[in-house]
């Protein structure tokens, strides 16, 4: 069971590489270089902060977009190219196929995040600014944010088109970061029903703001592991639920 899983996962990684996703790292490096050169001229005494914000911010925007693109298009591409039929005809369960593909997806994103992280810290060292624990935390937690988003993309793409899947995943990204506002607004509602609906929506949406440690990186605020661990666990659990939903929907799907 492990061998096909690994084979499918690595296959997914190779396929992403064939799709030239590595170009993204090059684009990121170029963007970082141009941005930092401009920032040295534009910024006044807040260079460290701006460099950190731009580096981690651009990294997160690029990788979130990539996560949405890769996860929402994965199954539809397999169906379109008919490669899916080759796999489902083999003695491999659909659950295994889907989870292996998800793992491959996360491997791609993880490798890109690592490469971007190396570039980012390289630049920080080059400019002689401070390397902080908060920066490592922000980049590390971004992986978990990408995991949650990818799992939503997979769940959506298991039963809908790439377009719908991508739109919903992007919506989930914004809603996940603004969930706190939904909670706040609903608690101010007079109707108990509205309050209940608002709170239910808040808990159903992925709480991405608890995985966002970019503000701490801005202010060089260290975060204890005791605080990070529950957030990591939350992300893994939420992703697991989404992947199980994807497996259920995908298993019931008729490809005739």
């Amino acid at each position: 069971m492990m061998r096909p899983f690994l084979a499918l996962m690595l296959n997914g990684f190779r396929e992403a590489r064939r799709n030239r996703v590595t170009v993204v790292v090059g684009a990121f490096a170029f963007g970082l270089l141009v941005a930092s050169s401009l920032l040295t001229n534009l910024s006044v005494s807040t260079f460290d902060r701006v460099l950190t914000d731009v580096g981690i911010g651009v990294m997160s925007i690029v990788l979130v977009l990539l996560a949405v693109f890769l996860s929402s298009g994965m199954l539809s591409r397999e169906i379109e190219r008919k490669t899916l039929f080759l796999i489902v005809s083999k003695p491999i369960s659909r659950a295994l196929f889907l989870t292996a593909r998800f793992a491959g997806n996360m491997l791609t994103l993880g490798a890109l995040l690592l490469a971007m992280g190396v570039l980012f810290f390289g630049q920080i060292a080059l400019y002689g600014t401070l390397i902080t624990q908060a920066q490592f935390v922000a980049i590390g937690m971004l992986f978990f944010e990408l995991m949650v988003l990818s799992s939503i993309g997979f769940a959506m793409s298991s039963f809908s088109s790439q377009m719908v899947s991508a739109t919903v995943t992007i919506g989930a990204y914004f809603a996940g970061h603004l969930g706190g506002d939904i909670y706040e607004l609903s608690s101010k509602a007079e109707s108990p029903l509205l309050q209940w609906v608002g709170k239910a929506t808040y808990y159903a949406l992925p709480n991405l703001s608890r995985l966002n440690y970019r503000v701490q990186a801005t202010y060089e605020i260290p975060t204890p592991v005791a605080e990070l661990a529950p957030s990591m666990l939350y992300a893994v659990a939420y992703s697991a639920v989404m992947i199980i939903i994807a497996v259920i929907l995908f298993s019931r799907r008729d490809f005739k």
């Binding site: 534009l42 807040t46 914000d53 731009v54 925007i61 914004f174 966002n212 801005t218």
Partner: peptide, 22 residues
């Protein structure tokens, strides 16, 4: 800005800070 820059508030703030300096 809070909605569009969801999850990237520091980056958006920095952008307008650079505009302020200009």
């Amino acid at each position: 800005l809070k909605v569009v820059g969801a999850g990237q508030r520091s980056l958006v703030a920095d952008y307008y800070w650079l505009q302020a300096i200009q």
